[in-house]
Amino acid sequence: MDDIKALARRAAFARRKEAFSRGQGQAAEILADVLAGYAQLALSGYMPMRTEIDPLPAMARHIGPVGVPVITAPATPLRFRQWTPEAPMMTGDFGALIPSEGAWIEPQVMIAPLLAFDARGFRLGYGGGFYDRTVQALRARHKVTVIGFAFAAQEVDEVPIDEHDQRLDAIVTEEGVRWFV
């Protein structure tokens, strides 16, 4: 399965890079509209890297607390440090920016970055398993809504999955929203 996922990741990086070069369209506005239905809930987003679609405009409009992922150790669930557009940032693991200070929050709604997604609601991530571990742990404690955020061009026929992969509740692209539940 690791080899299959590695090949899928290479192809997905290329598709995402091509989509990124065409621009983000109305994706952040659509995401903000979806998140408005969860206005007071704790939200986790992410700081976009390389060719990831940018959720920051939607995160900045969220009324409730917003956190971004922090890797605290290999092969463990993520933690989320509170973020605002004015938060002092530093470079974390894998080069992602993280708040240098602030409260830890536990999200009830998550925006998940990805390389690819399919019509079943599965996502292909970067291979560290951080999001799958995190979603599994959160779902064991309370309801959490996981929203993938991607370019429409990142959809594939079928994401290779194993027993650890967690399904998204929805996907938001520049073309609209698709719910999987």
Rank of each mutant, 00 (worst) to 15 (best):
K17R: 15
A6C: 01
S21A: 15
V68Q: 04
L35H: 08
I71A: 13
A119R: 15
R9P: 10
A153V: 00
V146A: 07
E158F: 06
G23K: 08
T76N: 07
G37T: 04
P77S: 06
Q24W: 07
V172P: 04
A96F: 14
G127M: 10
Y126D: 01
L115C: 08
G148Y: 09
R81I: 08
H164D: 08
A116H: 06
S44P: 05
L7Q: 14
G64W: 12
A6Q: 14
G176L: 06
V70R: 12
A42D: 09
L124K: 04
P85G: 02
E86F: 07
G176P: 03
F94A: 03
A152T: 01
A39V: 00
R79D: 10
F180Y: 15
R9D: 07
L7G: 14
L35K: 01
A153K: 04
E163N: 02
A11N: 11
D118T: 02
A116I: 01
V70T: 00
G67P: 01
A39S: 14
E175R: 14
V34P: 03
I161Y: 12
E106P: 00
R167N: 01
A96V: 13
R178W: 11
I147W: 14
P74V: 05
V34I: 09
A14I: 08
V70P: 03
A137K: 12
F130S: 00
A14Y: 08
R141K: 14
D132N: 02
P160S: 07
F180M: 08
T72P: 00
I161Q: 08
R10D: 14
Q24R: 05
I30P: 10
A112V: 15
G102I: 03
T91R: 13
F130M: 00
G23W: 13
W104D: 09
F13S: 00
V177D: 08
L114F: 10
I4L: 15
L124C: 07
A27M: 06
A119N: 11
V144Q: 07
P48I: 04
T134F: 06
G37P: 03
R178G: 00
Q40R: 13
R22L: 14
I63W: 13
A170C: 05
A116Q: 03
I63Y: 13
A6V: 04
V68P: 03
G148L: 09
K17F: 03
P74F: 11
A36L: 06
W179F: 14
F149I: 02
E155F: 08
F151D: 03
P88A: 11
Q26E: 15
I71P: 07
L35S: 06
R178L: 13
R120M: 07
L114E: 02
A112L: 13
V146F: 12
V109S: 05
T134H: 03
D165H: 06
R50S: 04
R120F: 09
P107A: 01
L35A: 06
S100T: 03
V109G: 04
P74T: 00
H62R: 04
